[in-house]
Structures are given as structure tokens and as C-alpha cells.
């Protein structure tokens, strides 16, 4: 029980801290959301490429895998795993295979939902 609570505390701390760093960058540099996403993705990919991100993910669970940095590291780590098992073909396809479920759901479900929903005007 204590262990599981401790885990959640770690998730909250790491997840919250990553978001907080994002907020600091947004406030100080005023960059747009798309840029901040790309920036964090890149950081994640670099950390993932050097194998460092998996340690953070092991320690903090969803606190590290859910932020977009986790997505970036999964892309890099996937490519490495692919290169190990399937050679050049694996190196080319590994990243997308590792993240394919998330991308497919994002695109596919958005497409389906958009067929039925229209954007609503905002009150504030």
C-alpha cells in the first residue's frame, strides 16, 4: 500500500514537473503550443536515443511515459529495438511500430468524431 502510494507520488512529481518546465518555457518565451510539443518531443527522442529515458520511465511510470517526451523516447527506443532485431528494416520501421497505436487512435478517432461534431463558440 505504502509502496503504491509512493509510486503515485513519484508519478505526480515527475509528470507535474515536466509540465511545469513546459509552462515556464511558455511564459518566458511565449512560443506556441505546436512548438512546445515539438521541443519536448525532441528532448524525449534525444534522451530515448541514449537510453536514458527508460530509467526515468521505470522510476516514475506514467509520469514519464504520458508526457510527449515519453512519445519521443518511444519513437527513438522503438527504432533502436527494431535495428537490434530486424536490421535496417527494423531501424526504419521500429519507431512508428512502437507508437503506432497512439497515432492510429488519435487520427482515426478524431476523424470519426469530427464527422459527427461541430465546433462550438466559446463564451470566454
Amino acid at each position: 500500500m505504502v509502496e503504491s502510494l509512493l509510486m503515485y507520488l513519484k508519478v505526480l512529481l515527475v509528470g507535474g514537473a515536466i509540465c511545469m518546465i513546459g509552462e515556464i518555457i511558455i511564459i518566458t518565451t511565449k512560443i506556441t503550443s505546436a512548438r512546445i510539443l515539438v521541443l519536448f518531443l525532441m528532448i524525449g527522442a534525444v534522451l530515448g536515443g541514449f537510453g536514458a529515458y527508460s530509467y526515468i520511465a521505470e522510476w516514475a511510470g506514467a509520469g514519464a511515459t504520458l508526457p510527449i517526451t515519453g512519445f519521443g523516447s518511444a519513437l527513438a527506443a522503438g527504432a533502436i529495438t527494431g535495428a537490434k532485431t530486424n536490421g535496417l528494416f527494423g531501424a526504419l520501421s521500429g519507431g512508428l511500430i512502437a507508437t503506432s497505436a497512439g497515432i492510429a487512435v488519435s487520427i482515426g478517432l478524431s476523424y470519426l468524431v469530427a464527422l459527427f461534431v461541430s465546433s462550438k463558440t466559446k463564451k470566454n
Binding site: A34, V38, I68, A79, L88, L92, G94, G95
Partner: peptide
Amino acid sequence: GLGAKMFYIAGPVIANGVAYSLIVGIVYY
């Protein structure tokens, strides 16, 4: 509309992500 512009903001994320993964994969190979 839907098909092309749904990637207006997320497109750069996917494009960058796939490019990084390709670079990492090939370098590792």
C-alpha cells in the same frame, strides 16, 4: 478540410517525431 488540416498543429509533431526516429534507427544500425 478534415483530411488535410487535421494535421495543422500535430503535423509538425508527427513529422519531427518520425524524422528523429529514422535518424536514431539508422545511426544505431
